[in-house]
Amino acid sequence: LVRYRTISKIPQITLNFVDLKGDPFLASPTSDREIIAPKIKERTHNVTEKVTQVLSLGADVLPEYKLQAPRIHRWTILHYSPFKAVWDWLILLLVIYTAVFTPYSAAFLLKETEEGPPATECGYACQPLAVVDLIVDIMFIVDILINFRTTYVNANEEVVSHPGRIAVHYFKGWFLIDMVAAIPFDLLIFGSGSEELIGLLKTARLLRLVRVARKLDRYSEYGAAVLFLLMCTFALIAHWLACIWYAIGNMEQPHMDSRIGWLHNLGDQIGKPYNSSGLGGPSIKDKYVTALYFTFSSLTSVGFGNVSPNTNSEKIFSICVMLIGSLMYASIFGNVSAIIQRLYSGTARYHTQMLRVREFIRFHQIPNPLRQRLEEYFQHAWSYTNGIDMNAVLKGFPECLQADICLHLNRSLLQHCKPFRGATKGCLRALAMKFKTTHAPPGDTLVHAGDLLTALYFISRGSIEILRGDVVVAILGKNDIFGEPLNLYARPGKSNGDVRALTYCDLHKIHR
């Protein structure tokens, strides 16, 4: 019993810090008490220290592992850092350059016999395009090294910054494609005289377009951006097909006994025919423009016929181009109408809503002055909100995010209106959640004399007048207030005048 009563005193000691020596009952000389009392004092002292730490809000209350900052290894790049964003855009520009100039170089340097010394005699450094290609190869190699040090988000939505895990993730992902696209074939085969082989191998750079397509997928929600990307894709495919079309004609031209190829026909049409040795002929500019003209006309199913396939190889390629053109029509131009419709969806919704308003007016036989006010209010409210119901949009977000959005939407009023000066951010967040926005066209009466005042109004834009009878008592403008002081009276009061809008007004109100 003594032991039980001794232990039962522990909660009292913990909360009230009572010393055991003052209790005459606990001072009985028993061996059990002498053993338990020192333990009680020690526990009391420890609990006292913990309570003191909690009340003082000291940093040592938290466990040590929670006080440590997340460790980022040296030379690790955050995937959302500004440097990584700028670097990704730079790589994107280099990939676009590669997609345009690599097929052009591979096709127009394929057994090209233009006048001038061969590239091997001039030297590697004197070729501007080769120098640019070398810079692109170096940048792609540097990009691989950067990807080995860039964080990523795993399946659990955690940012991984450990170098080993980053390397394994990159090896399992895009490393092989990036490595093949970054191989400097110019340096590996330079001086061997195989410019045709170098041009063909350099087309491996186009593998990076797969990554670019995935990154550009984030802009699919913007109709104008999608339309622009589709047109660029169409032009890029036409450019690639033009390079292939020229390569076919250029390879067949020296081996044909009869002059029936499209390059021969082009030379005869523009007065620059090929001679018996295969030299001469149109310039590279004429060849490229004509090839691009043929691919565009074939892809769009126009086909004027002034550039036509004559050999079997050219006919087979033309059939493939027609098939590609039909697929592009289905996948690209078939979506253009939907994209344009999405661009004008706001206008369509406006006309639909206006039609419903006019049908309501016609069905209920609203008189002319009231009908005009109804239409003007709808037009003004639509121009202010673009038909978007803010309350319906915010309803799907958590309250903390709703408060931040409301604070942002009402920031101008909260910053410049005098009653809100000096208020804490928590108070402003709470008030912003209570605001209701209303609009009024010129001549609209917001409050009639004798109406119950259940709200306090803040003028965000425009001006109003307060009338008693036919006498203008006051004219209020931006950041002015009218209405009933909230919670100042037990019952809502009545208006002693009319409140009429002089201009288009936007008002925020808080109800009782």
Rank of each mutant, 00 (worst) to 15 (best):
E64I: 10
E64R: 09
Y65E: 05
Y65M: 13
A69H: 06
R71T: 10
R74I: 03
R74P: 07
R74V: 05
R74T: 07
W75C: 04
I77W: 01
H79P: 02
Y80P: 01
P82I: 10
P82L: 08
F83N: 05
V86P: 01
V86K: 03
W87I: 01
L93E: 01
V95E: 01
I96P: 01
I96Q: 01
Y97G: 01
A99F: 01
V100N: 01
V100F: 01
F101N: 03
T102D: 02
T102H: 14
P103T: 04
Y104H: 01
Y104Q: 01
S105T: 08
S105C: 03
A106M: 08
A107D: 01
F108K: 02
L110C: 15
K111H: 15
E112M: 06
T113M: 03
E114V: 13
E114N: 06
G116L: 06
G116H: 11
P118F: 04
P118R: 15
A119C: 04
T120F: 04
E121K: 15
E121S: 14
G123R: 15
G123F: 15
G123L: 05
A125M: 12
C126N: 01
C126V: 01
P128S: 05
L129M: 11
L129H: 03
L129N: 05
A130R: 12
V131D: 01
V131R: 01
V132D: 01
D133P: 01
D133T: 07
L134Q: 03
I135N: 01
I135K: 01
V136L: 01
I138T: 03
I138Q: 01
I138E: 01
I138V: 07
M139I: 03
M139Q: 02
I141S: 05
I141C: 11
V142E: 01
V142K: 02
V142F: 09
V142I: 15
V142C: 08
D143A: 01
I146V: 05
T150V: 06
T150R: 01
N154W: 03
N156S: 13
N156W: 05
E158W: 01
V160D: 08
S161K: 05
S161F: 10
H162F: 08
H162N: 04
R165H: 05
R165M: 11
R165I: 04
A167W: 01
V168I: 08
H169D: 04
F171I: 14
F171V: 13
K172T: 08
K172W: 04
K172M: 06
W174A: 04
L176N: 01
L176V: 12
I177Y: 05
D178C: 01
M179L: 13
A182V: 10
A182T: 05
A182M: 09
F185E: 01
F185Q: 03
F185H: 04
F185P: 01
D186W: 10
D186A: 14
L187N: 15
L187I: 14
L188N: 10
I189S: 13
I189L: 11
G191V: 03
S192R: 14
S192V: 07
S194P: 14
S194G: 15
S194Y: 13
E195S: 14
E195C: 15
E196T: 13
L197T: 05
I198K: 06
L200F: 10
L201Y: 01
L201D: 01
L201V: 05
L201P: 03
L206N: 01
R208N: 08
R208K: 06
R211F: 03
L216M: 09
L216S: 04
L216E: 01
D217H: 05
D217C: 12
D217S: 05
R218D: 03
Y219A: 09
Y219G: 03
Y222F: 15
Y222I: 05
G223Q: 06
G223E: 14
A224P: 14
A224N: 05
A225L: 03
L229T: 05
L229P: 11
M231N: 01
C232Q: 01
T233N: 01
L236D: 01
L236F: 01
I237V: 11
A238S: 01
H239M: 01
L241E: 01
L241Y: 01
L241N: 01
A242T: 01
A242F: 01
W245H: 01
Y246I: 13
Y246N: 01
Y246M: 11
A247T: 05
G249K: 01
N250Y: 13
N250G: 03
E252R: 01
P254R: 14
P254Q: 15
D257M: 06
S258I: 07
R259Q: 13
W262V: 03
L263E: 03
L263W: 01
L263I: 05
H264N: 14
N265L: 13
N265G: 01
L266M: 03
G267I: 01
D268V: 14
Q269Y: 01
Q269S: 05
K272F: 01
K272N: 01
N275Y: 01
N275P: 01
S277D: 06
G278L: 01
G278M: 01
L279W: 07
L279T: 09
G280I: 01
G281C: 01
S283F: 01
S283V: 01
I284T: 13
D286I: 01
D286H: 01
K287M: 04
V289L: 01
T290A: 01
A291S: 04
L292H: 01
L292F: 01
F294M: 03
F294V: 01
F294T: 01
F296T: 05
F296R: 01
S297L: 01
S298A: 14
S298E: 01
V302S: 04
V302P: 01
G303F: 01
F304A: 05
F304T: 04
F304D: 01
G305V: 01
N306I: 01
V307D: 01
V307A: 01
S308Q: 01
P309N: 01
N310T: 15
N312P: 01
E314C: 01
E314S: 01
E314A: 02
E314D: 01
V321D: 01
M322E: 01
G325E: 01
L327E: 02
L327N: 01
M328S: 04
I332T: 03
I332V: 10
G334W: 03
N335F: 04
V336R: 02
S337E: 06
S337Q: 08
I339A: 03
I340K: 03
Q341F: 04
R342G: 10
R342Y: 13
L343V: 07
S345D: 09
A348T: 10
A348L: 15
A348R: 11
L355G: 13
L355I: 07
R356N: 13
R356A: 09
V357P: 02
V357Y: 04
E359M: 03
F360D: 01
I361L: 09
I361V: 12
R362C: 02
H364G: 03
H364W: 05
P369L: 03
P369Q: 07
L370N: 01
R371W: 01
R371M: 03
Q372M: 13
R373E: 03
R373P: 01
R373F: 01
L374Q: 01
E375A: 03
E376H: 15
F378E: 07
Q379M: 04
H380W: 15
H380M: 04
W382Q: 05
Y384L: 10
T385E: 12
I388P: 04
M390K: 06
N391F: 10
V393G: 02
L394M: 09
G396R: 08
F397T: 07
F397A: 03
P398K: 01
L401F: 04
Q402A: 03
Q402F: 01
A403E: 12
C406I: 05
C406N: 08
H408F: 04
L409S: 03
L409K: 03
L409Y: 03
N410F: 09
L413S: 01
L414S: 01
Q415L: 13
Q415F: 14
C417A: 09
R421Q: 13
A423P: 02
A423W: 01
A423V: 08
A423Q: 05
K425L: 09
K425I: 06
K425E: 15
G426F: 03
G426V: 02
C427R: 01
L428C: 08
R429Q: 01
A432Y: 03
K436S: 09
K436D: 10
T437W: 11
T437N: 04
H439P: 01
H439L: 06
A440Y: 05
A440E: 04
G443Y: 01
G443W: 01
D444Y: 09
T445Q: 13
V447L: 12
A449V: 13
A449R: 09
